[in-house]
Computed example of a mutant assay.
Amino acid sequence: MFNNSSKILFIFILMMSTMITISSNSWMGAWMGLEINLLSFIPLMSDNNLMSNEASLKYFLTQALASSILLFSTILFMYQNNFMMQINETNYVNMMILSTLLMKSGTAPFHFWFPNVMEGLNWMNSLILMTWQKIGPLMLISYLLIKFMLFWCILLSVIIGSLGGLNQTSLRKLMTFSSINHLGWMLMSMYSNEALWITYFMFYTFMSFNLIFLFNMFKMFHINQLFSLFMFNKTFKFSLFLNFLSLGGLPPFLGFIPKWLTIQYLTFNNQLFMLTIMIIMTLLTLFFYLRLCYTAFMLNYYENNWNFNILWNNFMINLYLIFSFFSTFGLFIISIMYYLI
């Protein structure tokens, strides 16, 4: 529908609108940044495809609903607090603002739109929705840390994100529920330390990009398509499924580092009940990742003895293997750098 130059322009506006949101000193300015962000992402979602058009319509209606409630709450907030960002846990206006921000980020129990929208997008738009589109709402949520409401959303996010992925065959929905689970961890890290959630978000973005880079390259959208990759080189096969385990936070992979830091802060703050539930639910996410990896890790699995040397000379494959190396051995590399410094 749009040429490449138009898409580049929309991506530039998308990035600038997020900068407006996170640098704003009033809720009205933040609302304007979120609106520009929404209007710049809708053209990127729309293709000459029925599913993508349906997904863009669902995304627009949901975000428009959240934006209207946010604007109404912002007007009330301005009259009450004299245009300043202040926190009051007993104020229902603050709770309304926090609810709309949680809906925009796709956090449970406001996640009803997230899996359906993701199912209709291509992988590049899915990556933007899972990563960049969460920066603005999460930054605004960090200004309104209402304890009791945030804790319930964290519990529901880690539970729904874990249980929702158990019966999925679509890779996009699998990544969606994984994103909801990681959102719970990010919100918990945000409550523990203001800078920790940014570190968690950066690690999560890298791991998601690493997997979606491969899915987009081979146009894979369902679990059964993964097994066709078993005919490739064993190094490529193991790197693919180790990235799944890294995304699940299994040590000693790179994805364990942000969870490790969050567990450490929760232990110091005596949040043991929340920590126990989050770790148990994360074990469930590792279960459906291991369900994918189990067959690939079996030594006696049948493989076709075909030659794919032409494919292995591809620059994109080599680039993916470099990213996969850092995702797999990142914990060792960071540990060595820490001791050397």
Rank of each mutant, 00 (worst) to 15 (best):
F2Q: 05
T18N: 08
M19Q: 05
S23K: 09
S24R: 06
S26N: 13
L34T: 04
M45E: 07
N49S: 14
K58V: 04
F60C: 11
L65S: 15
S67A: 15
T74W: 10
M84F: 13
Q86W: 14
N91I: 03
V93G: 03
S99G: 11
M103F: 08
S105C: 15
E119A: 05
L127M: 10
T131G: 00
P137Q: 01
L138K: 00
S142L: 03
S142C: 05
L144N: 10
L145E: 10
I146W: 08
S162H: 01
S162D: 04
G164C: 06
G165Y: 03
S179F: 05
I180M: 14
I180F: 08
I180S: 07
N181E: 08
M186R: 02
S189N: 04
W197N: 05
W197G: 01
T205F: 14
N216F: 10
N216V: 09
F218P: 03
F218I: 06
K219W: 11
F221K: 04
F221Q: 01
N224A: 13
L226V: 07
L229C: 03
K237P: 00
F238T: 05
S239K: 03
N243G: 08
F244R: 03
L250D: 05
P251V: 02
F256V: 02
K259Q: 12
Y265K: 14
T267A: 14
N269L: 10
N270E: 12
F273V: 09
F287Y: 13
F287D: 07
F288Y: 14
Y294H: 11
T295K: 08
T295H: 08
Y302G: 05
W312K: 11
L319H: 06
L319N: 15
F323D: 01
S324K: 10
F332Y: 14
M337C: 13
